[in-house]
Amino acid sequence: MLNKKIKLYSEFEREAIPYMDPLYNFALRMTGNKNDAGNLLKETFKKAFWFFEKLERGTNYKMWLFRVMKYAYLNSYRKKSKELIISDYEEIEKFYENMKYSSIDGLQLEKELYDKLSDDDISDALSSLPEDFRIIIILCDIERFSYNDIADFVDVPIGVVRSRLHRGRKMLLTNLYKCAEKKGYISK
């Protein structure tokens, strides 16, 4: 019995443990603090190991682990998410359109935002996005999941994934631009 468990653990160690860092970072972005992120990670791996024996071999283990974490998060940690109020998005859209029609071009933006903002500024700007948009950007741009996998993960059609990514990145630009303005990297 113990031998069987040890054999299973060594397989789990090979297939699942390498994803601990991405999962910890995802937990950190979802819960917003290190303590909850650590607990969520523990719960995720405990549940994952419990179900691992019955899991079909050859599964996309990374996506499966993210899914286990998602349900653990929804069950125990989800706080009232920052709802995106329509008027907020209208304001973002207006800000974005102003930028588009001002003299700023994309390459100038690249120089000002990419070079001058710190990694912390970028993490903060991403963390302040509403949850529905933040999750999709993390899964696409950091974890490099396909639209199909993301749609499956968040349980929405692919068109919604595409639309949220598009709008989420516009919101992110607005946050970063405002941050750069506040820090004096960009003149108003």
């Binding site: 990419y114 990694d119 970028i122």
Partner: peptide
């Protein structure tokens, strides 16, 4: 920016 500069801990 997200892919290259996001702080991974």
């Amino acid at each position: 920016i997200v892919a290259d500069r996001f702080k991974i801990q």
